[in-house]
Write a protein that binds this DNA or RNA. Structure first.
Lengths: 209, 209
DNA sequence: TAGATTGTTAATCGATTAACAATC
DNA sequence: TAGATTGTTAATCGATTAACAATC
């Protein structure tokens, strides 16, 4: 019932997965689910699910469980998915193509509004409806359009400099696919997708069996 | 000095990042580093670093710190990077292209040995030196080449079925880029790259500021 | 030797699980 | 009402941090 003051990273880190499973349940036409039922699907404990959700409010009903559609919408609200943010993409290589063509930014709370690349040969090309702009136009574009976030699909060496530039231009969040750890002001949000670390972890798991 | 019996997931999850920073230090010609020095670079505590490393052995020296090259090689050994494993890739879309062209599998402990796609039109095409094979040839190929792992770059709906097939064929590890959670036997290793979850997390971080 | 820094134990902190009264 | 299942508190477990003796 009571909203907690501070929510731990452990909890917020699990919210997207809850959301994903609730979307799935809704798609299958499931109307209600108990913490027990959901825990079995997700491979966690009912206790943890209830504990997690109650950080944000009492979304369930004793004797009934949780209404799938409602809980999904509650979590969407918590995640901020309904307040669509704007994002630009830096780099127009294969990773960018993969994201632009196969990834639903909108469903994850973002509206892609521009793509930039330093290669002049790409300028003017269209990526799934988006014209690629030269990186020199970044300043102007940002001043006019004030993007909330940037997706960095550029090499390691270029990432920090571009990120710094974007911070100066008011960008408040980074989705970082460059294989590097960025040093940025504390009020700037960063989500790293370190796929190299992920593959090494798989290597370790295979090794230790 | 003593190797621990069981290593927690929290610890092993940090190893790739240690490795990354040590590679970086080596590249810059740094010979030695103290836990304090490394902790400052990485934004952790010296205590945690020493604690983590001592799960696997006493790699440092009192009064000196750690030898960068040696520690890097120790961690590579722990991660199993030197025992190269074989991997195949399922799906030959943009994500696959991005990985094949820009990602160093070898450095992360894997040798890519084949790419498969269900689209016959792609069969025979070459991706960065790798011929794309039709998915119908998967069984035969696996029986002959016994890949250790598979990289799944296919849509959600197809992922589970292909994974099941591959498990039957002896594949022991999955690097999963499909936007789904796979249900697999416990002795099979899975590393999920849920980029959707990652972007939602960024959305949340932006929201809560 | 004196200074530095590890390896390791003990103390703290946080997260997960268990239990159960509240209540639909 | 009786059964089910939540919300929430208490107990357990694990992970991080602090401290310091060992030692290079």
């Amino acid at each position: 019932m009571e909203k907690k003051e501070h929510i731990s990273k452990a909890v917020t880190g699990r919210l997207p997965r809850y959301y994903r499973f609730l979307c799935d349940l809704e798609d299958r036409g499931v109307e209600r689910i108990s913490s027990k039922g959901l825990s079995e699907k997700m491979g966690t404990t009912a206790s943890q699910i209830r504990q997690d959700l109650n950080c944000f409010g009492g979304f369930g009903q004793q004797g009934y469980g949780y209404n799938v559609r409602q809980l999904k919408s509650n979590i969407a609200e918590i995640l901020g998915l309904s307040e669509i943010k704007t994002a630009i993409m830096i780099g127009a290589g294969n990773m960018s193509k993969a994201l632009v063509n196969h990834f639903e930014f909108r469903q994850k709370g973002f509206n892609l509004i521009g793509i930039f690349d330093k290669n002049p040969a790409l300028s003017g090309h269209i990526l799934n409806g988006f014209p690629i702009r030269h990186i020199d136009l970044l300043d102007e574009f940002c001043r006019e359009n004030r993007p909330d976030a940037a997706v960095l699909c550029i090499p390691k060496k270029e990432a920090q400099a571009v990120a710094d530039q974007l911070v100066r231009l008011g960008v408040k969040g980074f989705w970082n696919f460059s294989h590097s750890d960025l040093k940025l002001p504390k009020d700037v949000a960063v989500e790293n997708v370190h796929i190299g670390d992920s593959l090494m972890t798989l290597c370790y798991k295979l090794e230790s069996k």
